[in-house]
Design a binder for these strands. Structure first.
Lengths: 283, 283
DNA sequence: CATTTTCTGAAACAAGAGTTTCATAGACAT
DNA sequence: ATGTCTATGAAACTCTTGTTTCAGAAAATG
């Protein structure tokens, strides 16, 4: 699980002002920076004023920036010398080298899965394994990953459907869901209103909901009583990387397969056989 | 390999005064403390005065305590050689645990990008950046990732198209390509005949072709004179993981963006603005 | 033992960090 | 438009940090 500071940010993220969010974002992405940097530097890194920084920490419930630093330090000591992979700084020219890329990806993967609580993962897998039907949704750039996850799950159990990318038709599609179904939403930042709407709907219809998202949205999703799988997606550049999201999908599907057990394996083998037959029969 | 600070201390240790040694000792024992603590605190921890601390750093050849801190920070960011991560063995019961999953993913990522030659990556990026139009293809489970890559590239340059998932219509679609176009195929094992067919076609029409694939197919693809980006995808189980494939897509898109330079950034910003407008205008 | 040299922390000082105040720009409703 | 409310950075301020000075303690030397 993340630091106490990260938890507080996740809880209050939406109530923060835009520039406070910018800074909060940075702190979620690079928690170790708090130990090494002064508040002034943190403000400069994120392009906000010192005043905004001071306000943020107060709004998060601390008396002081010093409180924040002390807490962070105490937590570091409790966890012991963390052997985590540091996220590289942005190069001035924004050029991505292969080693930097590797390091960024490793850092995100490591943080994602070291923070992931097995019981949360298992709860999510249980919901998917036990559901009548499973619905997978992913808007925009996440759509590709959602499709990938859908195929993985289809290999393991029947009744897995995509919700169309056209948000306008979601009401119709969701109308046919029942309380025994499960809904998986892939939604990293930026968070759209549609997602909130769907989550609210899901809660009222008691649809079991699993949200795969990034730390800035965990709080929002959790408040809608969804099971949240948290993925780190930040890079030193302005772009995000969805690698850990895909990896999470992979792990989720594997865990569901484990839950289901023998029948999942049988289904997988059947599909593999079919694929082979088609391949050899087709030109 | 120790830090540069540690090396300097070791060199001059005997020449230091007793209270300086006390402090120096502490710094050798807990090198990370420098990042987190002020000089005053370091002095207090070791029971010496602030003045002594200031003198120590000067005696070690630094101008300033700030110099020391900056150097330490820089060293933290520039992390040493990446350690080789071993691929775990299959557990008997085939159960995937979170730590195992992380290790598998790290191992694949590391191998993929440590083997990746920057000149090959750059050649691929160059072809995509310079092409008239870009076509992206991915069959079956790779389709999701292909879509993801398409969106990434679309953010960076115009004229990026998906080739439909229905292989039967490929002849028609490919017929409209020209020798100035580029074709990106995502195809990990199992390799289908369709892919061979397309690659042959691409070679005869002098279509620049980039194949993202796994080591079992590299040879086949290379023989068709395609630029090959090799991804490690194996797991201790029977399933594959496409995480490194997605990561490769990410890196490829970033590299293309770098190639294109300013215009890519302008386009990205434009798209981000549009997205924001749509989001706020909707509902 | 006296004298010189070295070491050390207290205190003065300078620089920088963090907080608070305040004026203004922007959003939103009327 | 007009007024109201919120968000924000500049600047004034207060407090902490780091450096330097200095005087006394400790050690070394004759």
């Amino acid at each position: 699980m993340g630091t106490r500071l990260a938890l507080r940010i996740q809880e209050r993220y939406e109530e923060l002002t835009p520039s406070e969010q910018k800074l909060a974002q940075f702190l979620l992405d690079r928690p170790d920076e708090i130990l090494a940097s002064s508040a002034t530097e943190l403000a400069r890194f994120t392009g906000v004023s010192k005043a905004t920084a001071a306000r943020l920490f107060r709004n998060l419930g601390y008396n002081d920036f010093n409180d924040v630093r002390l807490q962070a330090r105490e937590e570091r000591n409790r966890t012991g010398p963390v052997q985590q992979i540091p996220m590289p700084q942005a190069a001035v020219d924004e050029t991505v080298t292969v080693p930097t890329h590797l390091q960024v990806e490793s850092a995100n993967l490591t943080r994602t899965f070291e923070e992931l609580r097995p019981d949360v993962l298992n709860a999510a897998a249980e919901q998917i394994a036990g559901a009548g039907r499973v619905w997978v949704a992913g808007l925009g750039i996440e759509n590709g990953i959602a499709r990938y996850l859908r195929i993985l799950l289809t290999r393991v159990r029947p009744g897995v459907h995509m919700i169309s990318e056209n948000a306008a038709t979601w009401p119709e599609e969701l109308a046919s869901t029942g309380p025994n179904d499960a809904l998986i939403i892939i939604a990293v930042r930026p968070w759209t209103k549609q997602i909130s709407t769907v989550l609210t709907f899901a809660r009222t219809t008691r649809l079991k909901t699993i949200v795969i998202t990034d730390p800035t949205n965990t709080g929002k999703a959790r408040r809608k009583e969804a099971t949240v799988l948290n993925c780190h997606v930040s890079t030193p550049w302005s772009e995000l990387t969805q690698t850990s999201v895909l990896s999470m999908a992979q792990l989720l599907a594997a865990t569901v397969a484990n839950r289901i057990g023998g029948r999942a394996k049988a289904r997988r083998d059947l599909i593999a056989d079919l694929a082979e037959e088609i391949e050899s029969g087709d030109i």
